[in-house]
């Protein structure tokens, strides 16, 4: 399967990645290779087998509905590049 430069640009835009022309070329080739390998895997007969969503055979891991202390305000905001009155402050996101 071939991944075009346009497809690379589309996916890069969704992921907010800025790629140079060279990188786009490189990604197009590498992603194509990966998907070609997927084509190979697709040759296997998987009829009646559920798609694997998890590599380990575990199911139903739950926690009980119990409240534990949250982070103190200082720690909660410790990584904030900018904060005011207990809020994270970010560049305005609506026009």
């Amino acid at each position: 399967m071939k991944i075009s430069i346009e497809q690379v640009e589309h996916v890069a835009k969704l992921a907010r990645l800025h790629l140079s022309e060279e990188e786009k070329q490189e990604m197009s080739e590498k992603l194509s290779q990966i998907l070609t390998y997927m084509d190979k895997l697709n040759e296997l007969n998987t009829e009646g087998i559920l798609p694997t969503s998890h590599v380990v055979e575990i199911k139903n891991v739950f926690r009980e509905d119990k409240v534990e202390p949250s982070l103190p305000e200082d720690q909660a905001l410790q990584n904030a590049p900018d904060r005011v009155n207990g809020y994270f402050r970010v560049p305005r996101v609506i026009e």
Partner: peptide, 12 residues
């Protein structure tokens, strides 16, 4: 609340 047109506040 934000005191400015340049910012948004986030509460998680």
């Amino acid at each position: 609340i934000t005191g400015s047109k340049n910012y948004s506040f986030i509460d998680f």
